[in-house]
């Protein structure tokens, strides 16, 4: 490679590669250099590091060619990329819309959770929005049949209020009560919605001898959003509630996907009279697809596959999304700083 060629090749390199090269040649001071000074430094030190410089240039050129080979989909900022690969966007948006109305059939895991409650405590750890509420409602219905009190706790007052409205619709307002820090409606009802703090306080009082009638017939405690156990400030309340929960009551822990549901289940089994059954899955009831929307309004799939990759190591970005994002980064991060 002649000197002129080298200079031209360097000028075509993106700034981040230039900076990496400059750093390997001139050390940390290169991080403060602009593009021109960087090129100058690299040219000056090129003889000693010719192998590294050339390797970088070659890999970059190969990448560029690979990107150019993939027909880019329309409307990109650079004109040499012809619109193409519409199949990908079409595949991404395929099937969008309202599904055929089907009679509601509970999923297997929902039935499994409800039935496992007959035998012991249950932890449900499934993705957000896959129908945990059904389990709660069905379990409540069964406990009601046996004339047992049900307590439903949630971390936020707003969520408690929403659940209260929802349960009122299902079971009728006379059967549902709510107790939060500042609200108290129908507090002797067989179904009680409360914040977890309130239940903890009730359990404190019961342990202190001020037996609350409601706790005598307590048959089921539903703890929603139980991943709050790991909350740095309020997590301790969840833990206390579970520890002090009366042994005759069944525990139903509803949680979003967490990393260690097995550990939680093993813990519950170790401290509660009945073994704890774990219901977990990663399957979303409505499939999820990911897209990338460039600020110029161009939409592409985010991943090479239309479906979500099963793990981060298998996540390969869609080449178009990658190209657009790199372009975006270069526009916002580097030109702004040097300009």
């Amino acid at each position: 490679m002649t000197r002129d060629e080298l200079e031209r090749a360097l000028a075509n390199l993106p700034f981040r590669l230039l900076r990496r090269l400059g750093r390997s040649i001139a050390g940390p001071p290169a991080l403060r250099m602009g593009k021109r000074r960087l090129m100058h430094t690299i040219m000056a030190g090129a003889e000693a590091n010719i192998a590294r410089v050339e390797a970088t240039i070659r890999t970059h050129q190969a990448e560029q060619q690979a990107l150019a080979a993939v027909p880019a989909s329309g409307g990109g900022a650079s004109s040499e990329h012809k619109p193409g690969k519409p199949a990908d966007l079409r595949a991404l948006l395929e099937g969008i819309g309202v599904p055929e109305p089907r009679p509601f059939v509970p999923d297997d895991w929902q039935m499994e959770a409800v039935e496992a409650l007959e035998r012991g405590d249950v932890i449900v750890s499934v993705p957000t929005g896959s129908g945990k509420t059904y389990v709660a409602v069905e379990a409540t219905r069964r406990a009601m049949h046996e004339d047992r009190t049900v307590v439903y706790t949630s971390p936020l007052k707003a969520l408690s209020n929403t659940k209260y409205t929802e349960f009122c619709k299902i079971f009728g307002p006379e059967f549902v009560g709510i107790i939060t820090g500042d609200r108290r409606d129908n507090p002797t009802a067989p179904i009680l919605i409360m914040t977890t703090e309130i239940l903890r306080n009730l359990l404190y009082d019961a342990a202190g001898g001020e037996i609350d009638v409601r706790l005598d017939t307590l048959g089921l405690v539903i703890i929603d959003e139980s991943q709050f156990l790991g909350d740095s400030e309020r997590g301790v309340v969840w833990e206390e509630t579970i520890i002090f929960c009366p042994s005759q009551a069944r525990l139903l822990l509803l949680s979003a996907s967490i990393g260690n549901p097995h550990e939680l289940a093993a813990w519950l089994t170790s401290i509660r009279p009945t073994p704890c059954h774990l219901v977990r899955h990663q399957h979303r009831s409505v499939p999820l697809r990911a897209g990338y929307l460039h600020p110029n309004g161009k939409l592409t799939p985010l991943f090479r596959t239309v479906t979500m990759p099963p793990s981060p190591s298998q996540a390969v970005l869609h080449p178009e999304a990658k190209r657009l994002f790199t372009m975006f980064e270069e526009d916002t991060l580097y030109t702004r700083r040097s300009g």
Binding site: G95, V98, P127, A256, L288, F328
Partner: peptide
């Protein structure tokens, strides 16, 4: 967990046959 919580809001059961998580960049 937070991203899962956010993306979990995508796709309404019974109303959508597929949900979308769209990423749009910011600096």
């Amino acid at each position: 967990a937070e991203v899962a919580q956010i993306s979990g809001r995508a796709g309404r059961r019974g109303k959508d046959s597929v949900g979308f998580a769209i990423v749009t960049p910011s600096p």
